[in-house]
Design a protein around this nucleic acid. Structure first.
Length: 568
RNA sequence: CGGAGCGUAGCACAGCCUGGUUAGUGCGCCUGCUUUGGGAGCAGGAGGUCGAGUGUUCGAAUCACUCCGCUCCGACCA
């Protein structure tokens, strides 16, 4: 490609809308432009990268036995109602109506669609296992699109769906995808590592997320240095808080006055001086059907995903102050577990043996001390509800750390939920009706693109890994006189490199050298060949290695072979 | 959805508080000359319904109200 024949609008300054570096470089390097919040146009250089990532994904999916299909982005709401996700995923569903007023959905994912294919097309165990995948545009009505392609409302995703005759077979399919993901990210030059994950709104039992550590990631990963444990914060469990929960039995519950105390922290201060770990945090949520109460140690925080498991529904919200008053008869700040009737109370495991605790009296301005959980509270449902914190130990005694990461892929073993909902069954060897065990595997293609930028750049711009660079080599001709020696040599090397199978761009723009150098580094071509009359005078050209900054002077006629050697 | 900030040329911004020539600066763009190995110089030029609407006023980019859009924070932390 000759640069003058393509379109790469680079920017000297970063647009104000871009906050994080990968978003800024995405725009500055002329890869993409924003149409509206969370909606982007990919320009020629961006498309090149995207296509290279997609090619790697296709290759590895095919190698893993995946069969490519393409499903509609527009979907009928009925199948979503059948799976129950019309309600469960309501907040991210893009709804549109046609000219007759009929409602449609823009698909955020395709479990329902593939399950309906399975329901009509798969009828025998002989057809299994099978794994369909597609690379397609998805739509999610994100409450807050952010960071360019990281959290967009329209984005490209590879999604795959496996169907197996048994749970055991499904695990084999799962592992194949897991391994394929490892290879895909590796080939993209990304250090993505798998962590145990929550299954959330998808349902299912077994799940891993592929995470790329990055300051600006939106997920938090809990891990140990020795690599023996890694999990999404939503899923993570530890052996418990660093300090053990007080369990010294004391006298009977006793009310005391706590005017103006509104928070756990207020109560830790004089004149009360009650450490947070000695308090019971009382939270009120409203689920689909009813209000529920959650108890935690005062210094612990609730984990949303774990609450969803305990509540047996992902649909819940925090209660409003007047709803809290209805349930407990007091305002936030004076809430406690004593005397609760007719409301389900979920308590974190940490409280099971707790004694001598302090909590609100459910009377504004009062708290109670000497609460002994076993003695004073009945009917609690105990489970793990707390969020893990840095420094706690795993069950193996390893201290955990937390780091921010970008989720670039997510694999699930789903079970039979969708097949049952869409009535996709098959007959097994004995002629018995069975539901296939399904798995689904998402990989954010556009997000991966930006994650690579986020992980691979310096102050001058992007540093593309060879495998996905828009062009692998940029030939920077410093004099573009068509019949001049510089352009002649540039043209020769260009032809040789093309013949060698490289993806090459020839910068033939009539611009000053500085601009060409800066642009090539901003866009991040792995190699640049600089050709100007100065070096040519001695019969040389300069090879610049973007990643290392190394500059190599080589004779013109050896340029192509040297590059071949460097890239081998 | 709640809070905060911002919308002025393709991009980055000034002007607004305290209303009053023809709305500015830098980058980019076009023309010409010069320059040519790290975002050049000179000269000339194009490009703006000042986000939209309504109101106040003799007069609105500037003041008020409404709406729209963008960005950030929050949306379990009692």
């Amino acid at each position: 490609m000759r640069w003058s024949n393509t379109f790469i609008p680079t920017l000297k300054e970063a647009p104000a809308e871009a906050e994080i570096v990968s978003h800024q470089l995405l725009l500055r390097a002329g890869l993409a432009r924003k149409l509206a919040g969370g909606l982007y146009t990919f320009l020629p250089a961006g498309i090149k990268v995207l296509q290279k990532i997609e090619a790697i994904v296709r290759e590895e999916m095919n190698k893993a036995g995946g069969l490519e299909v393409l499903m509609p982005a527009v979907q009928p709401p009925e199948i979503w109602k059948a799976s129950g996700r019309y309600e469960h995923a309501a907040d991210v569903l893009f709804k549109v109506s046609d000219s007759k007023g009929r409602e449609w959905l823009l698909g955020p994912t395709h479990e329902e669609v593939i399950a309906s294919i399975a329901s009509t097309e798969i009828s025998s165990y002989r057809q299994l296992p099978v794994n369909f995948y597609q690379i397609q545009t998805k739509f999610r009505d994100e409450i807050r699109p952010r960071f360019g392609l990281m959290r967009a409302r329209e984005f490209i995703m590879k999604d795959a769906y496996s169907f197996d005759v048994s749970d055991g077979d499904a695990l084999v399919s799962y592992q194949k995808m897991y391994d394929a993901y490892v290879r895909i990210f590796d080939r993209c030059g990304l250090h993505a590592f798998p962590v145990e994950a929550d299954t959330g709104v998808m349902g299912g039992s077994h799940s891993h997320e592929f995470m790329v550590p990055a300051e600006n990631g939106e997920s938090e990963v809990v891990y140990t240095e020795d690599g023996s444990y890694s999990a999404n914060l939503e899923k993570a469990v530890s052996a418990g808080p660093c300090s053990s929960t007080p369990n010294k039995c004391t006298g009977s519950p006793e009310e005391f006055e706590t005017p103006r105390v509104k928070t756990i922290e207020d109560l830790t201060k004089p004149p009360f001086n009650v450490p947070a770990m000695l308090q019971i945090k009382t939270l009120v949520f409203i689920t689909e059907k009813e209000p529920v109460i959650v108890l935690l140690r005062g210094d612990d925080e609730a984990n949303e995903a774990k609450l969803a498991v305990a509540f047996r529904t992902p649909i819940y919200r925090t209660a409003e102050p007047d709803e809290i008053k209805d349930v407990l008869g007091a305002s936030p700040g004076s809430l406690g577990p004593l005397g609760i009737k007719g409301v389900k109370v979920f308590a974190d495991n940490q409280l099971e043996e707790a004694a001598g605790m302090v909590a609100g009296a459910n009377k504004d301005g009062f708290h109670k001390r000497n609460i002994n959980v076993k003695r004073d509270l009945q009917g609690l449902v105990f489970s793990d509800l707390r969020a893990v914190r840095e420094g706690e130990l795993t069950s193996d005694g390893q201290p955990v750390k937390i780091k921010r990461s970008i989720e670039v892929g997510h694999v699930f073993k789903l079970g039979t939920k969708y097949c049952k909902a869409l009535d996709a069954s098959f007959l097994d060897e004995s002629g018995k009706k069975q539901f296939p065990v399904m798995g689904c595997y998402g990989l954010g293609v556009t997000r991966t693109l930006q994650a690579i930028i986020e992980c691979s750049h310096d102050e001058n711009g992007i540093m593309w890994p060879m495998a996905i660079a828009p062009w692998q080599i940029c030939i920077t001709a410093l004099d573009i006189e068509p019949d001049g020696p510089v352009m002649k040599s540039a043209g020769e090397i260009y032809g040789q490199l093309l013949d060698l199978g490289f993806d090459v761009i020839l910068d033939d723009r009539d611009l000053r050298p500085g601009i060409k150098f800066k642009d090539s580094e901003l866009i991040g071509f792995p190699l640049r060949v600089g050709i100007g009359s100065k070096s040519l005078k001695d019969g040389n050209v300069e090879i610049f290695v973007r990643a290392s900054g190394e500059k190599i002077t080589v004779p013109v006629d050896q340029a192509a072979s040297r590059i071949k050697a460097i890239l081998a």
